[in-house]
Computed example of a mutant assay.
Amino acid sequence: MKNNPLIFKLKIAKNKPSTFRKDKNNVCPFCDVEHLTDIYKQKEEMIWLHNRYPTLTDTLQTVLIESDDHNGDITTYDKNKNRKLIAFARDCYWETEKTERFQSVLWYKNYGPKSSGSLIHPHMQIVGLEKEDGYKYIQANNFEGITVLKKENIEVNFSTHPIQGYQEINVNILDNGETDLWADWIQISAQYVLEKMYNGRTDSYNLFFYPRFEGEGFCCKIIPRFYASPYFVGYKLSQCNDNENLEQEVKKLNEFALEKMGE
């Protein structure tokens, strides 16, 4: 398979603000709502706008500001707020995807210092790729695994064919309908990653949203972030924990979800 990397504009990246680097201006541009420009859509405190620092060639880079709380996150929002966010973000994805300008559209979220993000303020990114299939390395079995839950239009599992590894949680919505239960399980899974997985040693994660190969629905993949394995960095070889460990994680996630739902 031919490798066509996305071309990174270092000159633009040098000017990006960062709240993780001490040598950068720590003033948060997402808190300064009055001076935001190129806004596509707004609902309550959620704002979808053009990325002021487009660092990739042949793309449309957009940002979705999730909240006016600088230190907020999916893991800390109340259930109703999180449901509104996921529904709003999916609508913004569809608006980008339905245009004929892009070969593919990517939707993802960074959280924490190891997630490759530059700003703490909670946000997602929706990026249209004009010349590249962003899903060319993704396979249908990346969304499959040891089942945690099957209910209504939702299926949750620990991936047995992870993209990077070692423990990735897939939250699949199997149609393009109601997203509330999907949002609930995305939230619970992200909370589990930060609070319980690896005994609470995880401080970073990514959410990646993939349109499912069957034509309807999405997979939200929650990937805890550490420093990447050399097998992945050098060879694109993912690693997966053994089934005994994954079965234990399934049990612990179920117990964790029951606690959260009982709050």
Rank of each mutant, 00 (worst) to 15 (best):
I138K: 08
T76W: 08
E155S: 15
I146Q: 07
E132R: 12
G165P: 00
V63R: 01
L194S: 08
V250G: 02
I173Q: 07
R21D: 07
N4Q: 13
V171C: 04
L10M: 12
K136I: 12
Y111L: 06
C219A: 08
G128L: 04
N80H: 06
I47Y: 04
F209G: 00
T57F: 04
N4L: 11
N254Y: 02
V233Y: 04
P224S: 06
T160R: 03
Y108N: 08
M1E: 07
G145Q: 00
L253R: 03
Q61A: 07
L119F: 03
V233Q: 11
L129H: 10
P5H: 03
C28G: 03
I138P: 00
L149G: 02
L129V: 03
L181W: 07
H50R: 14
R201N: 15
S104A: 11
K2Q: 09
Y210M: 04
E132N: 09
E34K: 15
I74T: 09
L181H: 10
N4V: 14
K9A: 07
I120R: 11
W94F: 08
K150T: 14
A89C: 03
D38N: 15
Q187K: 15
E178L: 13
D69V: 12
I169W: 05
E249R: 09
K24Y: 08
G117R: 05
G165A: 04
D184W: 01
N80Q: 10
L119N: 02
E45W: 07
D23N: 09
M261L: 15
K260H: 02
E168C: 03
S104G: 10
P29A: 02
A87C: 10
L129E: 03
E95T: 13
E97S: 13
V193E: 01
I47E: 05
P113A: 09
C220P: 03
E259M: 13
E155W: 08
K16Q: 14
L60A: 09
E34M: 09
F158N: 00
M197T: 07
Y166Q: 06
F20R: 06
L56C: 08
S238F: 00
S238I: 00
E195D: 15
N3L: 12
G217F: 09
S18M: 04
Y205R: 08
S67R: 04
E259P: 01
W185R: 01
F256M: 08
H35M: 01
I12T: 14
M197R: 15
N142P: 01
G117Y: 05
E66H: 15
E214P: 00
F226L: 12
S229K: 13
I12R: 11
K9T: 01
D38T: 04
D184Q: 11
I126S: 06
F213D: 15
H70P: 05
M197D: 12
G112T: 09
L56S: 11
F143E: 05
F226A: 09
D69C: 06
E216G: 00
T55L: 12
I138Q: 04
S116K: 11
C220L: 14
D203Q: 12
I126T: 07
R101V: 14
K252E: 11
E263R: 13
V156R: 00
E216A: 15
D180S: 14
P211W: 10
T99D: 12
L258R: 10
Y210P: 01
I138W: 05
D68E: 13
S159G: 01
K84M: 11
Y198M: 13
Y137H: 10
C31E: 03
S115C: 03
G177I: 06
P54I: 05
I173C: 02
